[in-house]
Write a protein that binds this DNA or RNA. Sequence first.
RNA 1: GCCCCGGUAGCUAAGCCCGGUUAUAGCAGCGGCCUCGUAAGCCGCAGGUCGCGGGUUCAAAUCCCGCCCGGGGCUCCA
Length: 624
Amino acid sequence: MKILQLHSDFIEYQPIEREIASAEECERKPCRLEELVVLFVSVEKGDTIQTGRKAIDDVKVFLNRIKANRILIYPYAHLSGDLASSYEALEILKDMESYAKGLGIETYRAPFGWCKAFTISVKGHPLAEQFRSIQLREEKEVVSEALKAEEKIRSDWYIMDLDGRLIPVEDYDFTNHENLRKFAHYEISKMRAVQQTPPHVNLMRRLELVDYEPASDPGNFRWYPKGRLIKSLMEQFVTEKVIAYGGMEVETPIMYDLEHPALASYLHRFPARQYILRSDDKEFFLRFSACFGQFLILRGTQISYRQLPLRIYELTRYSFRREKSGELSGLRRLRAFTMPDVHAICADLEQAKEEMLRRFQLSIETLEGFGLNREDYELVIRFTKDFYEENKGFIALLVRKFGKPALIEVWNKQFFYFVLKWEFNFIDNLDKASALSTDQIDTENAGRYGICYIDEKGERRVPLILHCSPSGAIERDLYAMLEKAYMDQKRGKPPMLPLWLSPTQVRVIPVADRFFQEAEKIAKEISKHNIRVDWDDRPMTMQKKIREAEMEWIPYIIVVGQRELESGVLSVRDRRISGAEMGGEIRRMHLKDLISEIKERVRDKPFKPLSLPMRLSRRPRFYG
RNA sequence: GCCCCGGUAGCUAAGCCCGGUUAUAGCAGCGGCCUCGUAAGCCGCAGGUCGCGGGUUCAAAUCCCGCCCGGGGCUCCA
């Protein structure tokens, strides 16, 4: 409980309007009191009736000292950022009032839950103004070591340009680097207030990709067939990229014994809260990354220096983080998410740096596969001061490879288990930044988990571990893709997904019923070439079918009628050139050319067949 | 977790402030007509625990309290 205590000549206040629904009843008349002590009170979380009484006891002592006996208890929320619920606060304030009266103090109380105007005249003596913080006893809050460490951390912020110069953020000229400016602002200071549903949330539902699942815990989503197809292709793509880079794919449990000695200390390095699961009389936590499973494998693995760097990989479905409910936001921040996690065991710092460069490239290429290019995200590199002093060239090299100036955070000392970390951050339509790809140099966990390798001399050595997620959470990548599509739309470009991820790549639309057979024939021919094609056999006008296909962001739409039948040449709406509104040009092309064009565009990308019936009339509507 | 905003048909919303017949639209669905040339054809039918629970009232979608879900802000973000 916080109390601002003012010995006053008078106070005059008037309730203006209700601030909360549960505001007390009262008359909206001015009220004036003279020769009194005004108590501006913030009731805080954890406060009880006893807290309030202790406060009044203290006040009583003070009143005796200044020879006064009149008080006004004035509810005032602005003294604390950790307020009790309005219900509790009112209970406590009421009790304070009656308790004070019981002590023989002449007590008044201003109404609770109102926006009030007031005028006050405070006396000039030394004891007139006092601030009190009342607590019954030390609260035993469970704060992890990492959270505590974070409170003490001190960061300095810079921009590093392509020549490796460090420029303090406040001195940097952000001209032509609008996103970097937004990102720096987002990281360093508070955000502006926007009251808006993020655009991707509407899109993910309207396109029937993903949706909330009210029957689950918040932040755990349901995936409809189209969304599942996209996600599955993305998962497959990342996995193939990581395996090509040299990752050995494994699979590990999603839950771990809370009491296991190897895990307890690591848990303490993470501020996040876990899902806890009880089984018999044991408690388990759900993993928040693949680290545990992989480290536990590696600690029993015999590793020679010849095998380094050793790369181990898992795509977690899911990782769980019980983010605070107010932090959840669509696909941007969830409580259950899918994340590729590849660790590299490195002999020493030189090898780690070299390996990190390789993974940096891997991450860029992975995001590129999702249609996210370097203009779509910003680089931040965070490291300790000591690390920087000895590795200036390396950091400059990362920035040069990235090709754009980067945000730099320098810590005065090591608080986390890593000495360096970089991230690619996407800036969305509401100017919020979210990390996608990331990599870290971990100096602690090999020792903590007992992971070691044998060097040339036959001696045990503790390696460094790199932690990389080349794409970040898959859900978050989709969020970025949808937000980007929305940005395109705002700029008058047709919003779309990459061709290889489009749930339908080609739609065939007959102009009338009598061309159904022809439409189906064309669709079947195309599908033989591993292209996701469907055809619209619903009893609707062609115009409406085209409109719906465009609203589904289908990359190629073929309209089939008499002309196509006679000429053998297809009429193709190519989303890239036909424009979102009002059809642009129609491409005339032969079937085999269309097929080879598509095959060329999706070369090197995984393929999965349609996740829904080929005939639209057979599809249910999952949303809307 | 706290503060603010929202929750009415499958979806999107009006009605709520100021309580009063049978809760209103559009889209989607179903039935019928239309057989159509590049972004919404016409007519009809059906569809509702007004988020959930409690309270006030002769009477509650509407007022009050609690809870759930979503969004935004604070905070946080391995």
